[in-house]
């Protein structure tokens, strides 16, 4: 790992000011992706700005129709939050499928979402549940947040403060994990909001996205059999040593079927 300067600001404004005054800075959240990336010298920031000391970006607030999760909330805090388990159990379930226990004890929701790893789990929830991502400057719709491979709508220096998830009538998430890394080869989250269906997909393409073809069909006919008629084209899907684009397209349908069966069983 190359040398860097380390900073631990106590507020978002201090963090942003440190960012503006550094050569090539990066924010450090849980570090579960960034630290291994730096060890491999795939990232070499001049300055690391540790967000762990900022009270504004932590905490969980649950109301009847909204779950607000602070960006620095670690995955296991979402897994174990009694309020989230009661109001938005799909989010606790999804968080419990990330990586392994040691990773869940360190990794944060803000870090995961800001990184836009094509195989990360949380982006499926941001897209599938129609979440809103808040930064120090603005709010960004979940539909418009993920732009590409490791690319989001965040501007340089912008910090996610919290994410608001609307509470659906019911929802389910199913993933096909890579057996070694537990990253989603494909993950599908299906949510029902007052009769309207949203489908969020991760792992398949360069970043999480909605499966609008599936949504249209399921809005007419909310059955597992209805999914059989949906074509999932593999154009633009990822192809790597873990899975071809064609196989990923197949998995999108299989995971969607499983998620819908779960949802209908609730």
């Amino acid at each position: 790992m190359y040398p860097f300067n380390y900073h631990k600001p106590a507020s978002v404004s201090e963090a942003v000011s440190l960012f503006r005054n550094a050569d090539d800075p990066m924010y450090l959240s849980g570090g579960m992706t960034l630290i291994p990336t730096m060890k491999q010298r795939l990232a070499a920031p001049t300055d690391l700005i540790d967000l762990s000391g900022i009270p504004e970006v932590s905490g969980i607030e649950v109301s009847a129709d909204r779950v607000r999760v602070g960006a620095f909330t670690r995955h296991n805090d979402v897994v174990r939050s009694p309020e989230i388990n009661k109001t938005l159990p799909v989010l606790s379930h999804l968080a419990g499928l990330i990586g392994d226990n040691q990773v869940r004890n360190r990794g944060t929701i803000g870090g995961s979402v800001a990184n836009s790893d094509p195989s990360a789990d949380y982006p499926a929830a941001v897209v599938g549940l129609g979440a809103t991502v808040y930064t120090q400057d603005r709010s960004i719709s979940g539909d418009e947040f993920f732009l590409n491979l490791f690319e989001t709508a965040l501007h340089p220096g912008e910090i996610i403060t919290h994410i608001d998830f609307p509470v659906p009538t019911r929802a389910a998430y199913q993933k096909f994990p890579n057996p070694a890394s537990r990253y989603a080869v494909v993950g599908v989250l299906i949510a029902e909001f007052a009769g309207t269906i949203r489908v969020g997909v991760t792992g398949a393409g360069p970043c999480a996205c909605r499966a609008s073809g599936m949504e249209e069909v399921l809005n007419q006919n909310l059955t597992v059999a209805a999914l059989d008629a949906v074509e999932v084209p593999d154009a633009g899907f990822n192809s790597d040593l873990h899975a071809s684009a064609e196989y990923r397209a197949h998995l999108v349908k299989v995971m969607a079927r499983r998620a819908l069966a779960d949802l209908l069983g609730q």
């Binding site: 380390y6 450090l28 570090g31 579960m32 630290i35 291994p36 060890k39 690391l48 296991n76 392994d100 226990n101 040691q102 990773v103 004890n105 360190r106 070694a180 890394s181």
Partner: peptide, 23 residues
């Protein structure tokens, strides 16, 4: 040394973490 094997697991404030991936 790539946060996969868990041989370096210790507790930080009572939680298991991989000490090769903490600065």
């Amino acid at each position: 040394d790539t946060s996969q094997c868990g041989a370096c697991t210790v507790h930080l404030d009572g939680r298991a973490v991989k000490s090769c991936t903490v600065l």
